[in-house]
Amino acid sequence: MTEFDWTQLLDYALMGMLLAVGIAIVRLRNLFAAVMLAGVYSLISAAWFVTLDAVDVAFTEAAVGAGISTVLMLAAMLLTAREAEPVKAIRHWAALIVVSVAGAALFYAVGDMPVYGDPNSPANAYVGMDYITSTPNDIAIPNVVTAVLASYRGFDTFGEVVVIFAAGLGVMLLLGLNPGKKTGGEE
């Protein structure tokens, strides 16, 4: 890095906020506060997605993470419990051991990963950049993400849509779409 990139300061600030919110979520026992902080966490990560040039992703994360999933978790919380039970100390230590072993294994692999922002890394060098150069000639729309999503990888997206449909179907089967009629009868 030859010259200092000022947007990196923004990145560091967002990362610090993500860490603070993440640790707060783990420590809170009040479920309402935890769910609300999860929405905040999504919004901060959406802001980071914007500085990482992923505007489409930031858009989706802001709408889904801060909007829909917060509402769903609040609804589920209303139906279940407001407060989590305190956890025994031994369980904290067991979790800490699991997390440190897994984290150490991941840290061991960091040295082999490509440098942040490397244009020649394996992930960035081949197919991703081919989409950018060939989209004007094949599809002729400016937004490359839409071109890849709907045309180059339309088959993948079809699979995703079917998964969303199946998930919706699963929720309907589990909870019933018209609970007023008869579905909640067995309680």
Partner: peptide
Amino acid sequence: KVSGGQPPIL
């Protein structure tokens, strides 16, 4: 992310 890059909108 590519350093110095833009969002992929041509």
